[in-house]
Design a protein around this nucleic acid. Structure first.
Length: 554
RNA sequence: UGGGGAGUCGCCAAGUGGUAAGGCACUGGAUUUUGAUUCCAGCCUUCGUAGGUUCGAUCCCUACCUCCCCAGCCA
């Protein structure tokens, strides 16, 4: 993965772009990533980011970052900042300055006046309840509001007074005059402006009327010269409205909207609202909890930007509903980590072993990476007492067992072949210590006359460092926590999604900076915690993902 | 029952008239001082169903079935 670039996978959007470029409709493409700053970015956004920025890169076009900040009540500076951080961390840079829909509030207002003047928008003071009644249902046409035929002068006057703050919040809206009988609910005279006295993160208290998404998005796209406006499937039937607005104002650009299916991932959720709930109700430690499918959560867990981008490449882009296996994410991350993480040994569930013939045993130099000598080497010392993984010893081993057993031999990784002579037990029969001996003639070479099949990791008690290991599993116990009609997704939170253990690690990691990645051999990939790991002090490792394991599966 | 979409291997996903790419997962086997990596091999005679057109259909036509989205002054 870190080698040659991966081949591009075709999709319907690329086909459209290829055709648009070939026909001369466009010379270069302009896309945009348009988040609302009302939460942290998650894996679904990452897919969209990879699509929009990736397309711009591949086709030598441009991609804007534009905040869809039209609903001040839900938006915050913190979110806007985190979104920019996440996009950059993912490895993308937007064209020029960050754009904000709020930059266009004045122009949006003028276009609204244009619509009013054309008799295509009117002020309505129906209550929300009345509006709903007038809208009709999926199978029944709506009926015209009594205010629909208000004259232009009156509409203009009312709209200006809405802007100047004469009316109470929610008392009236500006509506597009389209068709109350349209089979498409979005075309039944949608509201395009509402009155809301809320402090806006960019414009402060300058405005008390705010434009709605459908009205704002298409105009923003047009003002920025977007060629391909990509969004998710649920906006498919908003497209007629997108086109209606641009067709009815004087604006020299009409971007085309294309919809792709949103990403769902097994064993997690990708609903901003529900992620917020997990944070607010403290089911997780925050937006960047390593169990969260947020960009910042995945980052903290140790996923790499390259791994996430590769994941996006592997899942592709289509219009069919999909729920992707977590295994695809994990394999993409492993593929990246395989070539970039140094190998070190750590023991997370220790069983003490005392070596009865350790005198004269030597330390050995070991590569930090089996296939990349440029990672360098470190010394792996041995001492009279060592820790091995409790799970690597079995008194009564299952068939096919290649690890340690009473009377058996095993290779200590980067060190000697060791034989287990005795298992010491406590009163309850639990094995609490092993007495073993090493074969002094096996350092850096195979033993004489016999084959030792197993290799286990270990640390020397005398030289090891204590560390905290945070082990993660899926946040939910079922593949589709959102799917149950009776139960809340909260009922499926996995109580074992986080396990914190104290263990031991080779001393060479002592001064590792935050966000340093290692493969602890045979255990998995780990990453020092961004927040709580202290180089030279308290060592905290987050398990990013386990290694592939062709033994421990049923 | 109105409108808009989607149905290709367990999960993704190309292909769209010329006889089913690829990835993940899975199963064998080789190499291995990580049961890792790497490497080789296998894995849908078939494209939601039923008809039709055609020398030939996943692709065109017809009917049907299933699933998703839409009735916010959210995005």
């Amino acid at each position: 993965m870190s080698g040659a670039p991966q081949p591009v996978i075709s999709n319907f959007i690329r086909s459209i772009i290829d055709a648009d470029l070939a026909s001369g409709k466009h010379n270069r493409i302009v896309t945009r990533f348009p988040p609302e700053p009302n939460g942290y970015l998650h894996i679904g956004h990452a897919k969209s980011i990879c699509l929009n920025f990736g397309l711009a890169q591949d086709y030598h076009g441009k991609c804007n970052l534009r905040f869809d900040d039209t609903n001040p009540e839900k938006e915050s500076e913190e979110y806007a900042q985190s979104i920019q951080d996440d996009v950059r961390w993912l490895g993308f840079q937007w064209d020029g300055e960050v754009h904000w829909a709020s930059d266009y509030f004045e122009q949006l207002y003028q276009f609204a006046i244009e619509l009013i003047n054309k008799g295509l928008a009117y002020v309505d003071d129906l209550t929300p309840e009345q509006m709903r009644e007038y809208r009709g249902t999926l199978t029944q046409a709506g009926k015209n509001s009594p205010n629909r035929e208000r004259n232009v002068a009156e509409n203009l006057d009312l709209f200006m007074r809405m802007k100047s703050g004469e009316f109470a919040d929610g008392s009236m809206v500006l509506r597009a005059k389209i068709d109350m009988a349209s089979p498409n609910m979005n075309m039944r005279d949608p509201a395009i402006y509402r009155i809301r006295r809320a402090h806006h993160i960019r414009t402060g208290d300058k405005w008390c009327i705010y434009p709605m998404y459908d009205y704002t998005h298409c105009i923003s796209d047009a003002l920025e010269g977007i060629t391909h406006s990509l969004c998710t499937l649920e906006f498919e039937d908003h497209r007629p409205l997108y086109d209606w607005v641009l067709d009815n104002i004087v604006i020299p650009c009409h971007p085309r909207q294309y919809e792709f299916s949103r990403l769902e991932l097994h064993y997690t959720i990708t609903s901003k609202r529900k992620l917020l709930q997990l944070v607010n109700e403290k089911h997780v430690s925050g937006w960047d909890d390593p169990r969260m499918p947020t960009v910042s959560g995945m980052r903290r867990r140790g996923y790499t930007a390259e791994g996430i981008r590769e994941f996006a490449r592997r899942i592709g882009v289509s219009k069919s509903e999909n729920i992707v296996d977590m295994a695809i994410m994990e394999s993409a991350v492993r593929d990246d980590l395989e070539s970039r993480a140094a190998r070190v040994m750590a023991v997370i569930n220790p069983l003490k072993v005392s070596l009865t013939n350790c005198d004269g045993a030597q330390a050995r130099e070991a590569d930090f990476h089996p296939n990349h000598p440029e990672f360098g080497k470190r010394l792996v010392p041995i001492s009279k007492d060592i820790f091995i993984e409790a799970g690597d010893f079995a008194e009564v081993p299952p068939s096919g067992w290649k690890r340690l057993t009473l009377g058996g031999e095993v290779r200590l990784r980067h060190s000697y072949v060791m034989r287990c002579n005795e298992a010491v037990k406590d009163a309850s029969g639990q094995v609490i210590e092993l007495r073993c001996s090493i074969d002094h003639d096996t350092l850096g070479k195979s033993p004489e006359g016999r084959k030792v099949k197993g290799v286990i990791h270990w640390v020397a008690c005398e030289y090891t460092l204590s560390a905290e290991f945070r082990l993660y599993e899926q946040l939910f116990t079922v593949p589709e926590p959102d799917a149950d009609k009776e139960k809340s997704f909260l009922d499926f939170i996995n109580p074992a999604s986080l396990t914190v253990v104290q263990g031991w690690v080779e001393s060479c990691v002592k001064d590792a900076a935050p966000e340093t990645r290692y493969q602890f051999e045979r255990l998995g990939y780990f990453c020092t915690d961004r927040r709580e790991h202290q180089p030279g002090g308290k060592l905290v490792f987050n398990r990013t993902v386990t290694l592939r394991d062709s033994w421990t599966k049923e």
